[in-house]
Amino acid sequence: MAGTALLDVNNVEVVYNRTVQVLRGLSLRVPEGEIVALLGSNGAGKSTLLKAVSNLLSLEDGDVTAGAIRFRGDDIASLTPHGLVRRGLFHVMEGRRIFEDLTVEENLTAATFALTGRDGASPDFDLVYSYFPRLHERRKGLAGYLSGGEQQMLAIGRALIARPSLILLDEPSLGLAPKLVEEIFGIIARINAEQRVSMLLVEQNAAVAFAVASYGYILEMGKVVIDGPVEKLMRDQDVREFYLGLGGAGAERSYRDIKHYKRRKRWLS
């Protein structure tokens, strides 16, 4: 992972309520253009790291007590959460967090505030609808009435409106049927390739994360325990056993289509 990183997290420690330490010297990098996967069991601190990066941690009485987080080389400590979004760092939060009492269109309108202060950037609703035609059909309806999958699409659609250079995606597969997971991850891979957006992807579903990512980190108790290129992680015996749920040999056949897309993207770029 040589070269300049879009996101550089260096030895970060996070404490909640001035008492509970959750991250213990975590370091990771997201290079320009890549999808980086961040895996780990429940409570490992994955969402906490994303909140630290987007500066939303302060809303939950969490503090970065050591280390540094740099986005495009700038320390984020002095930036406001909305300021960071306006600079191109968009956090799709865990649980989707769409505005249920607003229409689909108003949810996208809310995200146009991310373009404040960026000259020449006008919101492109059609781009969102081209990736997610179902959102177009339901644009006048209340977002609260969307299905779980459609709500996830809306959460990603809001990110697209903001034209970010980095998206932090927190468990987009949460609570979705396998078929839908495949569809959404196919679109995530396309967005990465076509819009040149880098992503830091938090997942429980390692198989699908590895299908789109090029590099992975595995987190335990607030620290990185294993990291490496996805091909290497997939050969790692522990990773296979604990994260991919594969005991012996048996190659992983699922998510073939997404992988196919990933190969094509490599070839494109």
Binding site: L56, V85, H91, F99, A110
Partner: peptide, 16 residues
Amino acid sequence: KATAADQGAAYSVGID
């Protein structure tokens, strides 16, 4: 309306 509904989410889409 977004701020009223969910402050964290409002920040996360770039609302001041």
